[in-house]
Amino acid sequence: MNNTGGNKIRLGIFVSVGAILFIAAIYFVGQRQQLFSNTFNISGIFKDISGLQVGNNVRFSGINVGVIGNIQQITDSTVRVDMVINEHSRKFIKKDARAIIGTDGLMGNKILVISPGVSGKQVIANNDIIETTVPVSMDDILLKIKVTADNAALISGGLSDIVANIHDGKGTIGKLFMDESFANNLDKTIVNIKQGAGGFKRNMDAASHNFLLRGFLKKKDRKEKEKRENEDK
């Protein structure tokens, strides 16, 4: 093979494409990490950063506006987190904005979420320190779940005792469900009530035909009829 001009051009294009792809990858990854845009720095002081790392995203109103630039332990209980934020977002972040550490999805990376401040407040300045909110850690959630589980265990224990009492026929509900004599008595009571109701009905029919009450009942029927007619109109 001779080094013809065509081969040299092909080789040049081949190498150039590789170089352009590499530079483009560097550019886009760098752009995401705010390397090629105007930025400003703000910081937050946290007690616990929950595994936040340098390079994690900073999110504002659900938009990635920057990255974590540096993390520094200041004292035994405070950690300073420096954020590199895109200059375009500065006008939206107020002095009273708060930062909280969250997670990107259920299994995603840690992120730092900035909640917007009050709209009337002054815009944040370079190197300002913003307020932070203590994130709810997984340990706290697990502790609360444990308390809830303990309570559920107590409740289920009580329920178990109640069911056992019912099964043994103890107490009102136990007698209701398990005592046969109680059920028989109840049955007889219902029969008596039915019989009493039948007798009461006969007495009332007789009373309605009595001449002392007939006038009163007719007057009542007439009033009801008039009322219905008025409603129909």
């Binding site: 093979m1 081969n7 092909r10 080789l11 190498v15």
Partner: peptide, 9 residues
């Protein structure tokens, strides 16, 4: 250049 062409391209 020749080898780069043969090996790479």
């Amino acid at each position: 250049v020749k080898q780069s062409y043969l090996i790479g391209y």
